[in-house]
Design a protein around this nucleic acid. Structure first.
Ligand code: MN
Ligand code: MN
Ligand code: MN
Ligand code: MN
Lengths: 223, 223
DNA sequence: ATCTTCATTTTGATTAATCAAAATTGATCC
DNA sequence: GGATCAATTTTGATTAATCAAAATGAAGAT
């Protein structure tokens, strides 16, 4: 029996490892991410290690084993399929679904998940553009540029938003910058913390650099 | 914060009270129903009492307070709406959904539940014919006859099945006795533990008395 | 009035997850 | 080579839920 808590830690470790490939995750980082006291992280990590889900070097950090990684991918699959289901089938707002999925991800069975997957037509990304791992634990996660670093003047399509905060997501939605949208960076003024975007010949907006960094894009076919 | 465990105990107490209206629920009964040791039931009941969800008389039994009853009805509402959702929208078999709902009932939020309710067209009964309490905690649960006691020769419609056991439900389904089906009791032979049913002019079946007791019916309009 | 019995309650442990605060350690800086 | 600092680990408690086994009590039986 793997508890919800174990699933949450393993998932967080996976995310942390993706953010810093190759490096060990330090206890401080993990404790902060999980919002627990440092000692709690240490003790949970020992539990994960005992369960064969992570390798732990005291004072050196943690790393998921491949079993741990598989578990993380299964939890992420559940999380992301549930999110998409909540948006597409139940009509919730994309800013609400992360928190809902945070609880549901520990409870949906394989049978239910398969039905959801089928009902959604075997999707590959969730409402935020995050890739959905396959049931065998594979993810397709190509390197992407973001609105703070992509070339200026070349048309792009928004493909992913790297922040689950409801207020941020609502802001993005109000700006009309959800995944699927086409944009062109008109220009950037780093000194003014501003990225000017053109959405259509008549519509344009400005974003701060921190926000622009969290919006991933893909160059569209030069039509 | 009310835990899943508290929700499960309160729900069980409600069911137990429905089965024996007016009486106090004894610790032995509760412990057996929850499949825990007797001492565990005693200690959980004290917790419920402290939380104002139940009245507890040592050695006299427990009874839900009205707050406890409201909570029970909310959990039952979640459970039953989720069951119907799993059958109608995700296409699961009615024999599987009880166990799934047992976990999901503690995790679906009000927002999600409202969407499910809407998507299903504000249903009043779940796949087993169990009534779905309203969001304000009202249930419409009329007294019903069953196939072991209803009049012989008068056409009936099956409206509810009082057993969530998957094997039993599969059996009922194979016999073509799901809620909605019309049947007439042809005759009964208590000595032989047999109830003969007519489903149509050409189709008939036999049930044991224990099974017949668990199938509730309603007399159909004498067409 | 006492005995017997069985349901119930109590007691003492255990497991998972957590915290606060103390102890430890590794590294950096004189 | 020490002193100092920050991160980490340890220690000792706490809460929820559970069990096994011992203690208690209420009823009925003699
Ligand atoms: Mn979670
Ligand atoms: Mn997402
Ligand atoms: Mn339950
Ligand atoms: Mn049901």
């Amino acid at each position: 029996m793997t508890t919800s808590t174990v699933e949450n830690y393993v998932k967080q470790l996976y995310v942390e490892q993706e953010a810093n490939p190759g490096e060990m995750v330090l206890m401080g980082r993990l404790a902060a991410a999980m919002e627990v006291a440092p000692g709690t992280a240490t003790s949970m990590v020992k539990t994960l290690a005992d369960a064969g889900l992570a390798d732990y070097q005291p004072r050196g950090g943690v790393r998921l084993t491949s079993r741990g990684q598989q578990l993380a991918l299964h939890v992420l699959r559940r999380h992301r399929l549930v999110e998409l289901f909540l948006v597409k089938i139940l009509g919730l707002d994309w800013s609400q679904v992360h928190d809902e999925a945070e609880a549901l991800e520990h409870v949906v069975s394989d049978i239910v998940l398969d039905r959801i997957d089928e009902l959604l037509g075997y999707p590959t990304v969730d409402p935020h553009g995050d890739p959905i791992p396959t049931s065998s634990g594979r993810v397709h996660d190509p390197k992407r540029m973001n609105l703070a670093s992509c070339p200026i003047g070349r048309p792009q399509r928004i493909v992913r938003v790297l922040d689950q905060n409801p207020a941020f997501l609502q802001f993005i939605e109000r700006q009309g910058l959800m995944p699927g949208t086409k944009v062109t960076v008109a220009d950037r003024e780093p000194a003014a913390d501003a990225v000017r975007l053109r959405l259509s010949p008549k519509r344009e907006t400005t974003l701060g650099l921190a926000a622009a960094n969290k919006i991933l894009v893909e160059a569209t076919a030069t039509a």
